[in-house]
Design a protein around this nucleic acid. Structure first.
Lengths: 144, 144
DNA sequence: ATAAGAATGATAACGATTCTCAAAGATAGT
DNA sequence: ACTATCTTTGAGAATCGTTATCATTCTTAT
């Protein structure tokens, strides 16, 4: 099998499609992002990318993340406390619940809320370009 | 008239009520915050506070903002790009529209959205402690 | 007025991110 | 494939917003 090669080709294609120059470092980072099912920050992504492509520098991770963001390939989140965290745009749009005790991130989506946002903005003469909705929450204790 | 004295006394009372020790610097900063109808950052607040109380240092501005936040007297906002921005909690709760072209901040409030947020969180086993809803928008061009 | 503790200004330190620059690499045209 | 051109890279310095340190000054409860 050639699964590693497969992934490389997939990432290469994705970069090409987004009009981004293809380099070893970018393939590695995009691969890591595609595999991640959490919301890692730049340093964490650097750690993971180094396992695939040891030469990647942190500077390049930051640069590439910006490039990928501009290309619409990843989303950058600035949750409260600490640095930015990233995820691919492969999945559908969603917002986040942040567990204030554990730091856990849960994703959710509500068409109703999005629709209300559009209505509110429109009424004030604005179009929503993008939005940020974060619910900082605490687990409801189970009644036992 | 003794309007400056009046304000000082008002600010002093507000600090006392919040259980915060009263100093010249804190009175000055809180006064500036109370007067602000925008969402200034720490450096901007420092500039304004220096006009009232020239001795205030930037370090104290940061320290005091944290103290005031803990005391529930001000809110800290982390809008995209740049540092934190502040406003007093005198007004009712509201969320923000950010004009992506001008940086302008518009406030709005929607009980409906807040209610939906609670419902969504509850369904996932969470209570909302606080939330952040920011609509990054662009002005709809007037048809002329 | 005084003692005990808290707040202050100046500046160093910090973490996250961006910049600089010479060297290496990618792409398009031959 | 070979070059020329333009881009990206790694390493580390620099920057930005913010917090920590510490000796001095100020608040507050007595």
């Amino acid at each position: 099998m050639s699964s590693e090669t497969d992934k490389t080709e997939k990432m290469t294609a994705a970069l090409r499609k987004a009009g981004i120059r293809v380099t070893r470092q970018r393939i590695a980072l995009l691969g890591v992002l595609a595999d991640a099912d959490d919301h890692p920050d730049a340093v964490e992504l650097h750690e993971r990318a180094k396992l695939v492509e040891p030469s990647v520098s942190l500077a390049t991770v930051y640069r590439t993340l910006s490039v990928l963001e501009e290309g619409g390939v990843v989303h950058r989140h600035a949750f409260e406390g600490g640095g930015a965290r990233f995820e691919t745009t492969q999945e559908d749009h969603h917002d986040h619940i942040l567990d204030v005790d554990t730091g856990e991130v849960i994703e959710f989506q509500s068409d109703k809320i999005e629709q209300l946002q559009d209505e509110i903005a429109r009424a004030l003469g604005y179009d929503v370009v993008h939005h940020k909705l974060e619910l900082y929450c605490r687990k409801i204790p189970k009644p036992d």
